[in-house]
């Protein structure tokens, strides 16, 4: 997913403008720092979880007694299957697990087709939904299990081709199952998001909105996808659109992301084009009601380290440019 040479851009831009290049600052806040540890579960017990990380290393984390895990539903950490992909929110320098999500996936895109029972891979009354996840992520097929369809349909009243879909679920055996709605579906068709408010006068020094996450990032990758990048810079006709008045930035630029709900802040580098998130003009109600519009789509690790809950799917955010 990362584009080559974007780290070099920061160095060159800083040299040209006489700025200093600061490395990404760690998360700061009132509470202790959070760490996201990702990997494949090698061993799990009520008191310990062992992960094989992407670089081939091993991460051993103590599981506190109050920790819960999620894998399509809340369960005890010891019930997680060995071999599942897990992301752990950890404290104390990444040694104590605080929350575990296993095989979690997020499916965001435009509905292309919905097929009912009898489809390959689906049980009777399950629905197979084909999605267009944008020019960078291609198409995905997701199974909406019958038992989850009511909950999803409540938040997706326009369950028809051409409308937006955003759900959280589990990836199992190469198949994605949607279990929870990640947002209240926008009422408009995909591509018909309202334009940003007119920018009369000066720009804002801080911009508020909502931050979400996406599973299209690599396991241990930190960063964000940002919608307002020039189309010719990323070769994407759908970028540069947002219902928030966002400034143009580039891959490699730094965002200061502040989680309004937890008070945590972190410098996050833009590593991808967020054209899909630019099409959503929704709100986050994680803590109060956020202004409309998705400002950044974070990598799961960044989202977790900022205090976000992957199952809730978003947090209210305020950004500045680093």
């Amino acid at each position: 997913m990362p584009y080559p040479g974007i780290d070099r851009r920061r160095v060159l831009a800083a040299a040209a403008l006489g700025r200093t290049v600061n490395p990404p600052a760690p998360a700061v806040g009132r509470e202790q720092a959070l760490h996201a540890v990702s990997g494949t579960i090698v061993d799990v017990s009520p008191h310990m979880i062992v992960l094989e990380t992407a670089d081939g290393g091993e991460a051993r984390l103590v599981v506190a007694p109050w920790v819960t895990a999620w894998r399509g539903g809340v369960l005890a950490p010891a019930d997680l299957p060995v071999g599942a992909r897990a992301i752990v929110r950890a404290v104390r320098e990444g040694t104590v697990a605080e929350r575990i999500w296993a095989d979690v996936t997020r499916i965001t895109g435009k509905i292309l087709s919905i097929t009912a029972e009898g489809s390959p891979g689906g049980k009777p009354k399950d629905q197979i939904v084909e999605l267009d996840c944008g020019p960078h992520r291609g198409r995905r097929t997701v199974v909406v299990p019958y038992r989850a369809s009511g909950r999803l349909r409540v938040r997706h009243p326009q369950f028809d081709p051409g409308y937006l879909f955003d759900a959280i679920g589990v990836r199992e055996g190469g198949v994605s199952y949607a279990y929870l709605p990640a947002t209240s579906q926008p009422a408009y068709r995909a591509g018909l998001a309202p334009p940003p408010p007119p920018a009369y006068g000066g720009t804002q020094s801080r911009i508020s909105g909502t931050a979400t996450w996406s599973d299209s990032f690599d396991d241990d990758e930190r960063g964000a996808a940002y919608p307002m990048v020039e189309q010719e810079d990323v070769g994407c006709d759908e970028s540069g659109k947002s219902c928030v008045g966002l400034p143009y930035l580039a891959l490699g630029s730094m965002l200061v992301v502040h989680n309004v709900c937890t008070g945590r802040s972190e410098d996050v580098q833009i590593v991808a084009c967020g054209c899909v998130s630019g099409g959503f003009c929704d709100r986050c109600v994680e803590c109060g009601t956020s202004p409309r519009g998705r400002i950044a789509e974070l990598a799961p690790a960044s989202f977790v380290e900022l205090g976000g809950d992957l199952i809730k799917g978003c947090f209210n955010v305020r950004i500045g440019v680093g």
């Binding site: 070099r8 851009r9 060159l12 403008l17 990048v229 020039e230 810079d233 143009y248 580039a250 630029s253």
Partner: peptide, 13 residues
């Protein structure tokens, strides 16, 4: 070799 835009600046490398 590279060109990108950040805020009101366009960079050419």
């Amino acid at each position: 070799t590279d060109s990108w835009r950040e805020l009101c600046w366009r960079f050419f490398s």
